[in-house]
Amino acid sequence: MEIDAAMRRKIVVSLVSVGAFFALFIGIGATYGPDLGETGGLALVGAIALFVLVMAGVGLVLQD
């Protein structure tokens, strides 16, 4: 089964977006340590909200 160019582009963009999300989580963990506290918790909630918005935007851009 061959994957056409458009599908490959969608896969790559999705993987990069998820990778950036994980990197952001790791960065927040490295910054605030194991005890996130109030500020770290807000940073995690903000990261999740940002991820949802970015994935929605990626979906809109990549729709056929």
Rank of each mutant, 00 (worst) to 15 (best):
G27E: 04
E2Y: 10
Q63P: 00
F25G: 14
F51Q: 05
L53A: 15
L24C: 12
Q63V: 11
L53K: 05
G41F: 08
L60F: 14
V16F: 09
A49T: 05
A47G: 03
L36D: 02
V61Y: 15
G37P: 00
A56T: 12
S14F: 12
F21N: 06
R9G: 01
A5L: 10
A56F: 14
F22G: 10
Y32A: 05
G33Q: 04
F21R: 04
A56L: 12
G40R: 02
V54H: 09
L44K: 01
G29L: 08
F51S: 07
L42V: 05
Y32Q: 00
E2C: 05
A23F: 08
G29R: 09
L24I: 11
L42C: 01
L50I: 01
P34F: 13
I26G: 02
F25C: 15
M7P: 02
E2M: 11
V12F: 06
M1P: 12
K10A: 13
D4H: 10
V52H: 00
A56N: 05
L36P: 04
A56C: 06
M7C: 12
A43Y: 02
L24G: 13
V45K: 11
V58Y: 04
I11A: 08
L62A: 01
I26W: 08
V61C: 02
G41C: 04
I26N: 02
L50K: 03
G59H: 06
V18Y: 11
R9I: 08
T39Y: 00
L60C: 05
A47Y: 01
V52C: 05
G57E: 03
R9T: 12
L62T: 13
A43S: 05
M7D: 13
F51W: 04
V18S: 10
M1K: 13
A47K: 02
A49W: 01
G19E: 10
V12S: 07
L15R: 15
F25L: 15
I3F: 12
I26S: 03
G40T: 04
K10C: 11
A20H: 09
L24V: 11
V18R: 09
F25I: 12
V13N: 10
S14H: 08
K10R: 15
G27D: 09
L42E: 06
F51C: 06
R9N: 08
G41K: 12
E38Q: 12
L15P: 01
T39V: 15
S14R: 11
S17Q: 09
I28M: 01
L53C: 09
E38S: 10
R8V: 06
Y32P: 01
A5S: 14
V52A: 13
K10T: 06
G29V: 00
E2S: 13
L60H: 11
A5H: 07
V16Y: 08
L15M: 14
V16S: 11
G41H: 07
